[in-house]
Simulated scan of single mutants.
Amino acid sequence: MTLQISRRGKECLKTAQTLPRTAKAMMDQLIAAQLKSLADDYKRRAEKASLDAARDCSIRRSR
């Protein structure tokens, strides 16, 4: 089964991909670690948004 990513998921994923690049440029390692942690959170949000969208779609189809 192919899962399409929702618009909200795409935005979260885009942010999740941008944050590690920003973290690599940081000189302050504490801030870099926080950005990496935030990127992981956005990856989880992207996954959840896609799963929610798929669930909503399947609910609409079953009605």
Rank of each mutant, 00 (worst) to 15 (best):
C57F: 14
A23D: 04
C12P: 03
E47Y: 11
L38K: 11
R60W: 00
R45Q: 13
A25L: 10
S50D: 11
T2G: 10
S37R: 11
D52C: 13
A33M: 05
S58K: 00
A46L: 14
A32Y: 01
D28C: 09
S37F: 02
A16L: 08
T2E: 12
L30E: 14
S37H: 07
R21E: 11
L3C: 02
C57I: 04
E47H: 14
D40S: 12
R61T: 07
A53M: 09
T2M: 04
R44P: 07
A16Y: 06
K43D: 05
S58G: 03
A32H: 02
L38V: 05
Q4G: 00
Q29L: 07
T2V: 13
Q29P: 03
A49F: 09
K43F: 13
M27S: 06
A23V: 03
L13F: 09
T22F: 00
D56A: 14
L19E: 03
M26T: 02
R21D: 03
T22Q: 07
C12F: 05
L19Y: 06
R45A: 13
A16R: 15
R60E: 09
R44S: 14
L35E: 04
L35P: 02
D40W: 00
C57V: 06
K36Q: 12
L19T: 01
E11Y: 05
R8H: 03
K36E: 15
I5L: 11
K10Q: 10
I5G: 08
A49Q: 08
R60D: 02
R55Y: 13
A25Q: 11
M27R: 11
Q4S: 09
M27E: 08
A16H: 06
L3F: 09
A33Y: 01
Q34P: 01
R8Q: 09
R61V: 04
D28P: 01
A25Y: 02
L30A: 11
K36Y: 00
A32Q: 01
T22S: 02
K14C: 00
R45C: 12
I59V: 15
D56L: 14
L3Q: 02
A53F: 05
T22W: 01
C12E: 10
A54S: 15
L3W: 05
M27G: 08
L13W: 08
I59M: 10
L3T: 07
A46V: 13
A23K: 07
C12V: 00
D41C: 04
K48F: 09
D40Q: 13
A53R: 11
R61P: 00
R61D: 14
R8M: 02
T18E: 11
A33P: 00
S62D: 07
D40L: 12
A32P: 01
M1E: 07
A23Y: 07
K14S: 06
R61G: 04
L19V: 00
R21C: 03
M27W: 06
E11S: 07
S50N: 10
S58R: 02
S6L: 07
I59E: 12
A33T: 03
K10N: 05
S58W: 05
R55K: 15
K24M: 08
R63E: 15
A49V: 11
A46N: 14
R8S: 08
R63Q: 15
R55C: 10
S6N: 04
I59Y: 04
S37N: 10
S62G: 12
